[in-house]
Design a protein around this nucleic acid. Structure first.
Lengths: 133, 133
DNA sequence: TAACTGTATTAGTACGCTTAGTACAGTTGC
DNA sequence: GCAACTGTACTAAGCGTACTAATACAGTTA
């Protein structure tokens, strides 16, 4: 399930955290779906179970998963996990916009960037506002 | 010149780095203007000169300033420093947009965020594109 | 020559990441 | 009931890195 390559770009537990976040946000992990066990993941990746447990604990602390002792860890139900991830991403986006504006990036330049991200062919949700961003 | 408060939000040299970046991007430090000496800044802040030197070295490595041994450190000329800062901010903005889109943030939601940042009263540069963002 | 400049070296300290070992309590399936 | 699984907790150690400091060096300037 987890497709994690232990390259050195960040710490192991952060990679596990990010990979699970990605799987949740893309829908690959559905709400209330069971995550692989701590020991199983550790064995598959050839790392210490404590490292995986650290990632799971961080996920639970952020409300993205919930764990039941002696049963397993599960994706937070009701879509709340994906919603939290989305809210955090939106907050980070706002912060990046603020810094960009401070550095002199104009709105039309931000427009051009967004054009490349939210390309028209995939823009199938949420109606446009009158004047645009 | 440098208005730096050594609060614990980040390391000292990073705060010095960020403060100089801010001064350059806002135009408070003009191209080819001389920066305060390493020892002078260190003395004013009550820290070790090496800490200031580390910030200056990072700034030079990123092309934002240039240093001449035994003379001083200067803001990169021709506006290239401010341009670099702007480019980096734009790159960071694009990355935040990519992550936000992956997490499910719609374009109209990004629109709303941008409305709060690039508010109309300050939008005095760069013409709008037809369709917006 | 004296006072300044940036630069380099070395070292101490602190912190984070990871591993390892051990243990506990609860659930599940036979 | 028992064995095998589950998450959880704790301590200890090794390792690498980040940060800061103390010191010394070499070059420029007046």
């Amino acid at each position: 399930m987890l497709d994690i390559r232990l390259d050195g770009r960040s710490s192991i537990y952060e990679q596990i955290y990010g990979e699970i976040v990605r799987l949740i946000s893309t829908g690959a992990l559905a709400p209330d779906e069971k995550l692989p066990a701590v020991r199983e993941t550790a064995k598959k990746l050839g790392i210490n179970p404590n490292t995986v447990q650290k990632a799971y604990a961080a996920l639970e602390q952020n409300g993205l998963i919930y764990s039941i002792p002696a049963k397993g860890s599960y994706v937070a139900g009701g879509g709340s996990a994906a919603e939290k991830i989305k809210q955090e991403a939106a907050a980070a986006l706002g912060e990046a916009m603020r810094k960009a504006a401070e550095a002199g990036v104009s709105r039309s330049e931000a427009d051009a960037l967004a054009d490349g991200i939210w390309s028209d062919r995939n823009n199938n949700n949420a109606p446009k506002k009158g004047r645009g961003i």
